[in-house]
Amino acid sequence: MMDQSTSTLTMLPTQASTIAPGYDLLFWVITYMCVFFFVLIIGAGTYFVFKYRYRGGEHRVDTNHTHNTTLEIAWSVVPLFLCIGLFAWGFKLYLDFAIPPKDAIEIRVTGQKWAWNFEYDNGAASAKEFAVPLNKPVKLIMTSRDVLHSFFVPSFRTKMDVVPGRYTTMWFQATQVGPQQVFCTEYCGTSHSDMLAKVLVLPEKEYEDWLEKHRDDPNATPADKGKKIFNGKGGCNACHAVAADQAIPVIGPKLWQLFGRAEKMADGAQLTVDENYIRESIEYPNKQTVAGFAAGAMPTFKGVLSDKEISDLIAYLKTLK
């Protein structure tokens, strides 16, 4: 699935952002430094073990070198300077991660239990994947709707936690066209490992077309708007299947041939699906749970989707046969 070439030999994924080469340089400098010290210390240790191995008979031991102040000072001060150097270089790189250029395009990212949603300034919205222009800085303003998540793009080398109740930001400038894999790296429950997304790095022209396609055009029917919300802002497609041939996702109930269907509830009650039930399930999902599905898995969308957007969604659900 992941299309970066990450053969087991090269430790790090491909460099797909402007900061990646700088990152990899520091990574390999630390690696060579560690290998050098490992060989130095462990090499000396191994040599001593074999050279001074007890071969029977009387123990020949030199017991008068039990400390050597100059040596001890040397091997305290030298690592100290190395550490200060590493700290300084590392922190400069950390600031490069933290400070986005002024002209960066702002995209709002919302994490919720097991799906990512993206919103652009011109109203375009999408879930599970989002487009970014090639060779242009992009700043993500991120928050979470329920628990901690973390937005991690290995090929950009960037990662930032997504904290509910607050905004956190991350920036990158993509230098390689094509989809880049996004992981969630802060444990968030059952489908933490399925909370994936894709960054679609597109040239300028295709990026503009993508935006247009995902913008809600004025003369769209309520059902079309509902479909865009279903796959975009609402992110419902992350948990609910909409067609018979869709094997996954199965986290939430299937939504085709929905209206008029008799649903058995977890507490045994029986009810036929109508508009009020759908509206109530969107705003207060934990009031009623369909039998066989995990209670509390669906976050509330009250205050996230306006009443008009919910009616568009319901219009769209009605079209599913």
């Binding site: 560690c34 240790g45 991690f152």
Partner: peptide
């Protein structure tokens, strides 16, 4: 001796995680 080998590797790889810059990519992996 096993301790010396393994702890030295463990300690040295701590360098990547103490350096703020390299920890960004490696954290929680």
């Amino acid at each position: 001796i096993g301790f010396l080998y393994l702890f030295t590797v463990g300690g040295l790889t701590g360098m990547y995680l103490a350096t703020a810059g390299t920890d960004v990519h490696l954290h929680d992996t």
